[in-house]
Design a protein around this nucleic acid. Sequence first.
DNA 1: TTAATATATGAACATACATTCATATGAAAA
DNA 2: TTTTCATATGAATGTATGTTCATATATTAA
Lengths: 122, 122
Amino acid sequence: MKEKEFKFVCGEKCPHYQKINKVKLPNTEQIEKLSDMFKLFADNTRLRIICSILNTELCVCDLCELLDLNQSTVSHQLQILRNAKLVKYRRDGKQIYYSLKDEHIEQIISTSLAHILEEEEK
Amino acid sequence: MKEKEFKFVCGEKCPHYQKINKVKLPNTEQIEKLSDMFKLFADNTRLRIICSILNTELCVCDLCELLDLNQSTVSHQLQILRNAKLVKYRRDGKQIYYSLKDEHIEQIISTSLAHILEEEEK
DNA sequence: TTAATATATGAACATACATTCATATGAAAA
DNA sequence: TTTTCATATGAATGTATGTTCATATATTAA
């Protein structure tokens, strides 16, 4: 197996090839998908929407009410979540009900919340 | 206990107070901290840096090499991670070595990666 | 002390994106 | 069919932020 080639060296011992060669990064596409996914959680409004439907389905009107947001704002954010396939939705008459598509989401949020709460103690 | 009051009603049945009242959201401060945290992961460059030091400490030069980035870019992003207290660092001579501060991070990343990989199968 | 080197930082620029307003769509009721 | 109502969407605007260039800081070597 060929050793990786690097373009820039700042000193004799540095960079530390032995350490660097052991690093296992997700590939470019995976990094892209990961950061795209985290972007979804990286906004107050979207995060509140996501948390709202962690355990129940809600219609757009419910979200506007619960979160005190413009209907337009909610719909725009839901569109983003739909495009990312993070949520599913169903129509029932005039209302459209949104819910989460995946249980990983709940796990990610709860782990992150644990992180936050631990920080608070310090 | 008083029932929550809502300002906007789109129909007779809607909003669905019974469902809405059961929703348990993190409080405002927690939402803020959560989304701030996700922002850290929501950028390709920062995410690659974070993944690089998941299991080892690396100096700035190592990161420049490994990730093929400007030294300035790396330092700026490390500053953001430092301010967020997501990383710790130690000086050894001219080099400064960075590592992660918390094991939650690894868990969040691996859960998220599992989510991504599951999506790929579909 | 002076020079060299690893890292940090400030300013400028370009880009991404969240919100709002106005309006469109599409289902149900009249 | 026409109206009403819940939701979606396009355009415009302001703001946040990632990268780069130039330069500062701090440690080591000479």
